[in-house]
Amino acid sequence: MTDQTQFTAPRGASWWRRNQIAITPWLFLAPGVLFFVVYVLLPVFQSFNISLYDWDGLGTAEYVGMQNYEELYYDDAFYTSLRNNVLWLLLYLLAIPAGLAIALFLNQTVTGIRLYKSLFFFPFVISQVVVGLVFSWFYDPTFGLLNVMLGWFGMGPINVLGDEKYVTYGIIAAGLWPQTAYCMILYLTGLNAVDPEQIEAGRLDNAKGLRMLWHIILPQLRPATFIAFVVTIIGALRSFDLISIMTNGGPFGESRVLSFYMFEVALSEYGFRMGYGAAIAVVLFLIMLCFIAYFLWSMYREERGH
């Protein structure tokens, strides 16, 4: 029998003494909630509001209703950015199986495993700016290592970042390097929590290789997989820094994504069109909201099932 001690305030105690156990958690949550409301929720609603105006950020804002969204509908640069975002979404998800494969390798007991872990962990700790510069040098058509290796096979130089057919794929490849490292860390943490008794039971049932991975290990890695999917999709949708460092949206705007196009329109060469930039931000937010809502619903449904 377990003793359960409950706090009972003495008679005549103050309101705080009577309710402090119920209120204390909310006091700890209050600063985080306040920051979330001020720096996340309010800017979201402000963006919706600004998207209904023609405004340069300094002068008088002119109400134009849905005109900014109508202009988006006929904007070819917007569709190019949207197409590139879809490419980022699809190809960025390769970081998840790649991170899992590396984590499974690093979870083994082999000679020099600490060195391997350091090498694979390295991309996660360096800045995206450094990643962009490294891959810009790697792709350089005159002295880049990529074209040096292509020369070994008698192939001509390829200007990856200067060719509109290859540029988006080249930047995505650069982004996959640190993103794979992040997924690897998530899966390494998840593998530490895998139940060894289930592994032994699987071995007794002759489960090996892919059967062991599919039926025993992966079900226990669902929390890590869920986080990896959420973070990877959000990372793909808000990709900005690599594009800014490596191509600045070029060539001919072919490497733009929605976040970069929003920056260009609102704060760059297009005349500080804050309303139009806010409309792009709203579209990007709604796309991201659909994915987040889906993942939250999946998590809620899974919790109810348990």
Rank of each mutant, 00 (worst) to 15 (best):
P219D: 12
A173K: 02
Q108K: 09
L161E: 09
R17E: 15
R114C: 00
K208I: 15
F226M: 11
P25A: 11
G65D: 11
I96A: 03
F226C: 02
D56M: 10
V38P: 02
N19Y: 11
G99V: 00
V38M: 15
C183Y: 04
G253H: 10
F45Q: 03
N206L: 11
V38Q: 13
V129E: 08
A98G: 05
N159P: 06
N84K: 06
V38Y: 15
R203C: 05
Y79V: 08
F28H: 09
S239R: 06
G277R: 01
F252A: 15
D140N: 15
P223E: 05
T24M: 14
V130D: 06
M299W: 14
Y74F: 12
Y73H: 13
L221H: 01
L41Q: 04
P123W: 11
F260D: 09
A266P: 01
I126C: 09
W297T: 14
G162C: 07
R304G: 08
T232K: 02
V282L: 04
A98S: 08
Y300N: 11
W137N: 13
G65N: 03
C183G: 07
S259P: 00
F135V: 02
A224W: 02
D54C: 07
D140V: 03
M66K: 02
I245R: 06
L27K: 06
F135H: 07
A279L: 01
F78T: 00
F48Q: 02
A174T: 08
T2V: 15
F124I: 14
W88Q: 07
L34I: 14
W55S: 11
P31W: 14
W137M: 13
F105G: 12
G144P: 06
H306L: 13
Q128C: 02
W16N: 04
L237A: 08
Y63R: 10
L72A: 05
L90D: 03
P97D: 00
G156S: 12
L41M: 06
P97R: 01
Q20H: 13
S239M: 11
P196F: 03
A9M: 07
W137R: 13
W26R: 05
L218T: 10
E197P: 00
K117W: 10
W152Q: 04
G253A: 10
S259D: 08
L150M: 08
L87Q: 13
W88K: 08
T247E: 12
L89E: 06
I243L: 14
G112P: 00
L94C: 10
P196V: 05
A236I: 09
G57P: 03
P251L: 07
A61C: 08
F36S: 13
G12T: 01
V257G: 05
G99H: 02
S81I: 04
L27D: 00
F45C: 04
L145H: 01
Y39P: 03
I126M: 15
L176R: 04
I185T: 12
E254T: 10
T2S: 12
T180L: 03
V231R: 09
